[in-house]
Each structure stands twice: as structure tokens, then as C-alpha cells.
Design a protein around this nucleic acid. Structure first.
Lengths: 352, 352
DNA sequence: CTGAAAGCGCTAACAT
DNA sequence: ATGTTAGCGCTTTCAG
């Protein structure tokens, strides 16, 4: 039908035969009102199907409890889990949660943050690793400062702060340790020719994983030249393409560390297409332990990152003590989960 | 540090040496202002890092362009894809998108819809199938009527309207046709003893799939008794449990139709644990074609439901002609995608 | 115990 | 071309 006007507090007041002040008082419930009037007001409100105007409320009340989540895309299982954690924790505290997807475009990210400032979000959570260039550093510094100026908090979730002095809360995984552990797992199985697929130079999460990978190699006494990093970026398609390519020009690897589980999915597929059996002919490990990782063929050995907890921790810490949350850095541990995608290399390692 | 006050339009006006009206005019850009003043105002706004207060704007401007999405959980690949479609289409129209997860709890759903009314969402999209009981019917009728009363639209995305007269736009898949097609695919391969895992009596989407499954059986001349539906609900764990159980007490099925791909994942796993090779010993099909379905072991033959398009269509149709959108029903087609999880049954079907 | 009235920050007439 | 002003719907002193 035609957009009838919304019922206002005044109409409720009229119907109940009281003033708007009284209605406001019973609805807010923060002021003693005699049961008789109370009931009358409540009945009138229900009869009219009155809903308060959140904007008017926010205007006078100084903003409302809202956390804004900014991520690359909702369909990535990892991001979705983080978002779910944020949402759950926010809901548990009675906060509203606004989710925005940027598709990885800094421009859209900026617009969204701006929008959130307009909306009066009191918590803005930026999720996921990013390419940390000068533009990024400047952007985040500006967000943090702007948000801070209006009493809001910036939370960096799974990405580092470009500068420890910036008023932002950082909640991260120890990516370097995770990659080190999973690479060591491969080394312990006897592998020596191990490739890393899914680098993305400048991306903080991936750079850390590459560092962990190199560190593991070094710790096992391998020369720096033993490392082979393919910077194909993330995603199933990228992993598939890169693996196909790698197999064509450099087939003598016995194991690959994928930048994340989606890359691993692509790698597994490419290996299968090339007639390689995993783990018999080739070992593959992933990163993140997404819900379907155990349904891969074969079930994937990977690094479990408590993604939902990452989200929960982000808002829990930010809400716990808003004023002290600025500048602190919280690191979440990870551990590897062993399934069936790793076996000793086909030929015994020569240097054992 | 301490929550300084937000910069208001008045401060910008003062700094620029003009009135608030002038500032409002240049910022809204809907009124001619001489370049000189314009520049002065813009400069002042930038210097002060001014951001408009969306609440004040909404209050006077009569709400803002916002679509609210209500779904069970973000981590379900199917829901995530629908949400992504909604988000993308909304963004393309310059609308904001608020996502809320209910965890399947009608109570939370109701609260969220209420919240969205307060926030002034002009479009509320309810995503995903539901158990359609009396309580549901009444709830939806109330949502639709309440939303309609305040000039907002209700969109049912992937769930039916309990009553065609309700002012809601419905965008759905033809679940019956999809299930019929995939079951027929199994029948054509020679299967006769086919189980359906993942029924959820009352759930509209699943009920439709079960109907399609039965219809296919009937169309191939099988008696009604040939149907075997296990009402285990959705999810990987449910599928795994139900399949394990089925295998134990009734192992003579040669194929299973899973309620969705996640159930199929569980079925595949249970089959593997029981030493069955898919598709050699058992054929399995899924529903939805989630992104990782082709990475299952083996790659899953399933029904492709254009989930993202479902979301896009929902907001596109609702936005196209808001007043005519009420009461219309839009059906999206599906098609099966053949991969490697189906083969002829191990022993030749006796009745061929 | 309850009502009147003063804004919250902004836009849109209406003046000048 | 720009300023003045009256609200938008609500909460919250401040009176009565």
C-alpha cells in the first residue's frame, strides 16, 4: 500500500491519555512509573504497533551500540567464520552488527569506513590480511585517528597495525609460528623439496607464513635456496593455476605448503588432473582448517586457526575496556591438525 | 583518547564564515552554490574532518536506503552466497546492507526484524527455508503487515509465503524440479534403491525436494514404498550420523540423494569410513553446488542453484518497483551439474 | 508522579 | 546568494 507514516510516540501518548514524556519513561524503563499508567501506555503502544525511531533515539542519546565489520567477501569460509564470531559476541553484548564487503577494493573500504562514521558505529573492525603499502599505512592511520576523534574504536582483526602508536586494537594469529609448525611437519616426514604456493608480497598474513616456511627450512639445515615461493595469491582458482604451472616446469617437488585451504583445494585438484596421488606421490598442507577441509580428497592436513574466536576476541577485548584497548596487541595461537594429505616422499630423501 | 564530541555542521559553518544552511547545501549538492563559497565550505569541512550525522539526516529526511538481511548463519556456504548477492546488488544501488544471524531461533529472528523496523530498514530480506508451522505463518504475516504499515517491504528469499495475499515479495528456487531432475539422473544410471537423507518435515525447501524425489521415483514406475526418506535435517554432522546409521541397519541402497551439499559431505565421509567407494559401490548426489563441491571426494554431482543470483534478484525486484513487488512470486530455475559421484549400481538392477 | 519544554544535528521551506 | 527558522521523534532536565 502507500507508505503510511510511522506511528510516533505522540500518538501513543494521545491514545494512552498521557504525555510523551511518560511514554518515553515507561518504554525506556529507566524511571519509576506507577503500574497503572505503565499498563495503559504499554497497551496503547501495542495496539498501535509502535516501534521507536532508532534515529531519533540515537540523535539525542548520542549514538547506539553498533559494531561495523569490514571484510573482503562473505563467501570466504575463513572470513565468514570470523564474522560469525564478531556477530555472536556483539549480539551477546546487545550490540548491533553491520557487515560490509569491499571485494578487496581500498576505495570501497574507505567509503565504508566513512559511512560507518556517519552511522555512528562505535567499533569498526577491519578483518583480514592486506597488502601493507604506504597507502595502506596512511589509510589506517587516518581511520584510527578519525574514529578516535569521535570516540569510536578501530579494531584490526587478522592484520597488523602499521604503527604501534596508532590508537587501534590488534587481534592476530601468529602466522609465522603456524607456518613454521606445518612446514616442520613436512620436513619431519622426510620432505626436502617443499614449495610454498600462495604468496602475496606485501600481504602481512602471507608474508608471515612465508617467513615461517623459510624459518622451518633453515632450522632443518637447508640452504636458503631450497625455498621456492610462488606468489600466486589466494583462492581456489589461483592455487589450481599455479600448481598446474609448477607441475609443468618444475615437477620435482615432493610437498607443497598452500597459502590457505582454498589454495590447497586448487592444488589438490591440479595434482589429481596431473595424475598425481596425494599423499602417495605428493604431500599437500593447507592453512586455516576451514569446515570442509576434512572433506577434501584426501582430508587435508592443515593449520587450525580459531577463526571464530578471533572475531569474538576482537569485540570482547574492545568492549571490555574501550579506553585501554587502544594500542594493545593480542596474539592467538594456532596448531596443526593432522589428516591424510601428508606421507613420506615417494623416493627416500637423499640426505637422510 | 576521551570521546571528544563529534564535529557538527555548525562548527563547519563558523569556520567557513557562512550559515549552516549553506554548508548543508554544498554538502548535499542539490542546490546551486557559487564556487567560491563552495570551496571555502569544503575546505573547512575537510580541515575539521567533518562527517555528517546519519541519524540527524535520517530523522529529517525520512529514513535512509538500507536493506536488512536475516539469515540463519553466515558460515553456511549457501547462505553466504545469497548474502553476497544481496550485498552486491544493494551496494550497486547505493544501499546499505545490514546482516543479522539468528542461529535458527524464531525469537531472535523476531527481535532482529523489530530492530530493523526501528532502524528504518526499507527492505527486510528473510533468507532460507524454514519450518512452516502455524507460529511461522502468523509471524510472517505480522512482519509483512507491520513492515508494510511503515512503508517497508518484506522479501522472502528461498522460502514461500504462507499466504499469497500477504504483502511480500517471494523469490524462490524450484526445489521440486531440481530434486526431480537429480533423482532422475540416478534412475537413468540404473539405480532403483535410492535413499533421501536430510528431510526436515515442515521445512519448505526440503519438503519440496522430497516431493521431487518421490515424483521421480513414481515417474519411473516405482511403487511409493520404494521411497526411503531419512529426516535427519541439514548439516555435515547430521549427514554423517544419518548415513552411518543407515549403513548399519539398511545397507542395501545403491544411491543417496542428500538434502544439500553439506549433508552430502557427511554422507561421503560415512561411506568412506564404512569402506564403500563412491561412486563404485555407492552413488551420492547433493544439492546447491557450493563452491567446494567439486573438491569433495569424489567431486560431487549436484544441483546448481544460482544462490548469488537469488540474492541479487531479491533486491533487484524489490527495488525495481517497490509498490508492485508485494504479492509477486519469482521462481528461479536450477540445473544439475554432473561430476564424479554417480555411476551405475554395483549389481545390475534386477528389474531392468 | 507527570507534564512542559529544551534541544540532539540536520534539511527545507521561507525570508532577505 | 545566503541567512533564519521550524521542525523530524525522541530523551531528559526542570517544574508543578
Amino acid at each position: 500500500m502507500a507508505a503510511r507514516e510511522r506511528v510516533t510516540i505522540r500518538e501513543v501518548a494521545e491514545r494512552a491519555g498521557v504525555s510523551v514524556a511518560t511514554v518515553s519513561r515507561v518504554l525506556s524503563g529507566n524511571y519509576p512509573v506507577p503500574p497503572a499508567t505503565r499498563t495503559r501506555v504499554l497497551r496503547a503502544a501495542k495496539a498501535l504497533d509502535y516501534v521507536a525511531n532508532a534515529h531519533a533515539r540515537a540523535l539525542v542519546g548520542g549514538g547506539r551500540k553498533m559494531v561495523a565489520v569490514v571484510l573482503r567477501q562473505v563467501t570466504s569460509p575463513f572470513y565468514a567464520q570470523v564474522a560469525e564470531g564478531i556477530e555472536a559476541e556483539a549480539a551477546a553484548h546487545g550490540w548491533l552488527c553491520l557487515v560490509g564487503a569491499t571485494g578487496g577494493d581500498p576505495q570501497r573500504e574507505m567509503e565504508f569506513v566513512q559511512l560507518m562514521r556517519e552511522e555512528g558505529a562505535r567499533l569498526v573492525v577491519l578483518v583480514g590480511g592486506v597488502v601493507e603499502d604506504d597507502s595502506y599505512r596512511e589509510r589506517v592511520a587516518r581511520y584510527a585517528q578519525a574514529l578516535d576523534a569521535s570516540g569510536a574504536r578501530l579494531v584490526l582483526c587478522g592484520r597488523p597495525s602499521p604503527d604501534p602508536d596508532i590508537p587501534a586494537l590488534v587481534v592476530e594469529f601468529d602466522n609465522e609460528a603456524g607456518a613454521l609448525a606445518i612446514t616442520s611437519h613436512l620436513l619431519s616426514a622426510g620432505h626436502r623439496r617443499i614449495a610454498f604456493l600462495g604468496g602475496l608480497p606485501g600481504n602481512t598474513s602471507l608474508d608471515a607464513r612465508v617467513r615461517g616456511y623459510r624459518a622451518a627450512l633453515a632450522a632443518h639445515g637447508l640452504p636458503a635456496g631450497a625455498a621456492h615461493v610462488v606468489d600466486c595469491g589466494l583462492g581456489r582458482a589461483a592455487g589450481h593455476r599455479a600448481m598446474t604451472e609448477l607441475l609443468r616446469r618444475n615437477p620435482d617437488f615432493t610437498a607443497v605448503v598452500a597459502g590457505d585451504d582454498m589454495v590447497a583445494a586448487g592444488v589438490l585438484r591440479a595434482a589429481g588432473e596431473a595424475g598425481l596421488r596425494v599423499p602417495h606421490d605428493l604431500s599437500v598442507v593447507g592453512y586455516n582448517d576451514i569446515p570442509l577441509a576434512e572433506d577434501f580428497n584426501p582430508p587435508l592436513t592443515t593449520v587450525r586457526t580459531p577463526s571464530e574466536e578471533l572475531g569474538r576476541a576482537a569485540v570482547r577485548l574492545a568492549l571490555r575496556d574501550p579506553d585501554r584497548a587502544a594500542g594493545i596487541r593480542h596474539l592467538l595461537g594456532t596448531h596443526i591438525v593432522v589428516r591424510d594429505s601428508v606421507a613420506p616422499p615417494p623416493a627416500p630423501a637423499r640426505d637422510l
